[in-house]
Design a binder for these strands. Structure first.
Lengths: 222, 222
DNA sequence: TAATCCATACCCGATGTTGGGTATCTTTTT
DNA sequence: AAAAAGATACCCAACATCGGGTATGGATTA
């Protein structure tokens, strides 16, 4: 809190812009968002952009940023992990997630690991500016739509979280591996895989693989 | 061809900008892309934007545009249908599709119905400008990545198209209906559904429902 | 320490899926 | 008019999945 205020004051005293690192695997969205930010406010500036999480990681290590804005769905690494890395390298950095998906579970997970803002790609550009404004003041920002989802998605909590092992198996199922193949890959018995499978079906509230694959898609396990 | 050249000359003679209608259900991408186009060239101008296909349809009927740039994946209506509508209302309009997905079948389908350009969201903003440039000269534009995909996806043609009935059944399977339920819904025998099922698996090159559901997701049947 | 959770593994039986066919009738294409 | 494609429907056998259990050892939490 204290650090933040100091940072904020320092910036404004020196009339410096907040330096932003923008990450998205879609080049066009990257450039579009940069155009929005650079054009809409003279308080913020996109210092660098990265279109892979790896490149972002590299930039984070060798530069100083005030804010990280990142896509959530990216190849190899989820926005989630990138945020964790960013918070480690630059503990004071503020993070905003830009996502297509509006699954309550994902949003909750992000907030839990300390993301400061969450915006959907279908929100307006004003949301981005509002979010930047809020997070630099040390507050959390959720776009209207996101709040809406959180409120109406509460009972969704009964969807108990899958255990790590169950997530692993769900992913393999969704990759078209058979029970036998999964057993071979994980060096466990087919019976065990079947047990996991049954538990997963129960937890996800479906009664066949199709439902499971749909669950995997909705929760970005694919 | 003739008409196009006339249009092109007329525009430049009058020093008028090409009028663009931009359609995308993600507000941020809409505004970002608009910023890119308006900022990068004084030959083109985003006259209107729409975040639903319905709104786009309305605009198309009451206004004149030279170019339509549309997302492919949208609720209710696919970019495909919007292009058909646009070409009906304004036969001379040029159409460019902006898509996340890089399925050869989708690209081929779009080119078949007369789309003039195809860009992936992971391409650079220069691709958009290049595309605008080309299509106003009456040429087709495929971004490098897209051409790449088309070339390496040729043998994908063995993925013979599913028949209407097969598509119908695929959708039902992907909606978690069992063979028995599908038989009831379509008033046909379970045996028939099984036959369709087998043919679909063969055509899509998979050997279980999981692969089928993945196919459904990739081809926007879900 | 006791209770809970997680991962492991087995049993059983019912039901569903997959892969191999063949066959008829209608519609569309050549 | 002949050929091809599409939708219908059946047979059979092998295999996988699903739903109901129970059980055990290890780790974590209360």
């Amino acid at each position: 809190m204290k650090i933040l205020k100091k940072l904020y004051l320092a910036r404004s005293a020196r009339k410096m812009k907040y330096q932003i690192l923008l990450v998205d695997d879609h080049q066009i969205l990257l450039e579009g968002t940069k155009a929005i930010i650079d054009g809409a406010s003279d308080l913020f500036e996109v210092k660098d952009t990265a279109h892979t999480p790896e490149r972002a990681q590299e930039l984070l290590k060798n530069n100083d940023y005030d804010i990280l804005i990142t896509d959530y769905e990216m190849p190899n690494m989820k926005g989630l992990e990138l945020i964790k890395i960013a918070k480690t390298v630059l503990p004071e950095i503020k993070t905003i997630v830009l996502s297509m998906h509006d699954e309550p579970s994902v949003i909750r997970e992000l907030l839990k690991i300390g993301a400061d803002g969450f915006i959907l790609k279908k929100d307006t550009h004003q949301s981005i500016i509002d979010a930047l404004d809020k997070v630099t003041r040390g507050k959390k920002f959720l776009s209207e739509d996101v709040s809406e989802i959180l409120i109406h998605g509460i009972d969704d909590d009964k969807n108990k979280d899958l255990t790590p092992r169950e997530v692993e198996i769900t992913k393999l199922i969704a990759k078209e591996y058979s029970t036998k193949q999964i057993a071979d890959i994980l060096f466990i018995s087919e019976r065990t895989v079947e047990t996991h499978r049954k538990n997963i079906l129960k937890k996800t509230g479906t009664n066949n693989v199709v439902g499971l694959v749909r669950y995997a898609y909705k929760n970005n396990l694919v």
